[in-house]
């Protein structure tokens, strides 16, 4: 699971009104190279919950992102490379996702988050 996906995931169990951003605990990460595309990165920024992204990036060991993204940052090659690396190249292999509202824990095994709900949750 990449941080791109982490940023989009939400717990949609019954009774949970705002099941995102999910908390992240990590025990193993892996880096796989991905194609660098500044256009895609620029397009993703408004979609991301930037605060949640920065927190998650800190969990996987990438720190030092600015608190907000300004248009002139898109000209900054170093920033884009770092953003690209954290968003698309680092894969969380083993870990846990935690719902901010209910505290429900979703396990990540072999890079696949298990978002299956129990019968009483849906």
């Amino acid at each position: 699971m990449r941080l791109l996906t982490h940023n989009m995931l939400a717990n949609n169990a019954k009774g949970v009104t705002k099941g995102f951003p999910l908390g992240l605990e990590v025990t193993a990460v892996e880096t796989k190279e991905a194609e660098f595309n500044p256009d895609f990165l620029k397009k993703m920024v408004p979609k991301l919950e930037w605060g949640a992204f920065c927190e998650a990036a800190a969990v996987i060991g990438v720190t030092g992102f600015p608190t907000a993204v300004t248009p002139d940052l898109f000209e900054d090659e170093a920033f884009l490379k770092k953003f690209h690396n954290a968003l698309l190249e680092v894969h969380v292999e083993e870990g846990v996702l935690i719902c901010p509202e209910s505290g429900r824990r979703f396990a990540i095994n072999k890079g696949i988050p298990n978002m299956l709900l129990n019968e009483d949750e849906c």
């Binding site: 699971m1 990449r2 791109l4 996906t5 940023n7 989009m8 995931l9 939400a10 717990n11 949609n12 099941g19 995102f20 979609k47 919950e49 890079g111 696949i112 988050p113 298990n114 978002m115 299956l116 709900l117 849906c122």
Partner: peptide
């Protein structure tokens, strides 16, 4: 990226 999820329980994603 892959998710283990049941579509009958809904798409576990943020809006839009």
């Amino acid at each position: 990226d892959l998710l283990l999820a049941d579509m009958g329980q809904g798409v576990p994603m943020r809006p839009a």
